[in-house]
Design a binder for these strands. Structure first.
Length: 180
DNA sequence: GGGACGATGTAT
DNA sequence: TACATCGTCCCT
């Protein structure tokens, strides 16, 4: 399986959020590939976006978001769930919220939800800052999405008018999109 | 040093 | 609708 070029993420963040739909997220654990087809994403536009972690300032945690595009930003929420993002640069990133399990998922492991997919694919802060065009964690070409749905982002009600922006994108035909 | 607060998931 | 659970951020 051939990784997408790192430059895939070096575009407008909304464009990347849409282009990621249908592509594959691959994590090799102990030489075994876990493959999910991305069916739900959210765009976090940068320091001016009050829902974006980088809006709280440039800190050790968010530093990778200010680096070059095409790297993984992984964080822990609620003390127990990891979330994985594709950095697009300038403090912006795309959160992967759901994948369709294709390969290497354990029995009963699910991909619907940002915390579920990282758990199922073995992604933790150990993968923070990894380039997404090299093993063990990378993006690859998948089957394109025929209809893209759009909505406000999930769980960012604190962000004022930014909470209402339509920055969540999903495969309208996929049963693996999260409930939100 | 300490307290408030999550880009969630699951059980009640 | 309650709550588990802990890293991060800022000291309100």
């Amino acid at each position: 399986m051939k990784p997408l070029p790192r430059g895939f993420a070096a575009r407008d963040t909304v464009e990347v959020a849409r282009a990621l739909l249908g592509q594959l997220l691959v994590h090799e654990v102990d030489g075994v590939a876990r493959v999910g087809r991305i069916v739900e994403t959210e765009a976090y536009l940068g320091p001016h976006d009050l829902a974006c972690h980088s809006s709280k300032g440039r800190t050790a945690r968010t530093e990778v978001m200010f680096g070059p595009p095409g790297y993984a930003y992984v964080f822990l929420v609620y003390g127990m769930h990891h979330c994985v993002n594709v950095v697009t640069g300038q403090g912006a990133a795309v959160l992967i919220r759901a994948v369709e399990p294709l390969e290497g998922f354990g029995a009963g492991a699910r991909g619907d939800g940002p915390g579920r997919l990282t758990r199922s694919m073995g992604i933790t802060r150990a993968q923070q800052g990894l380039p997404l065009d090299l093993k063990p964690l990378f993006l690859a070409r998948g089957r394109s999405v025929s209809r893209i749905g759009r909505s406000a982002r999930i769980g960012v009600d604190f962000a004022g008018s930014w909470a209402r922006r339509q920055l969540r994108f999903f495969d309208a035909q996929s049963p693996h999109v999260s409930q939100g």
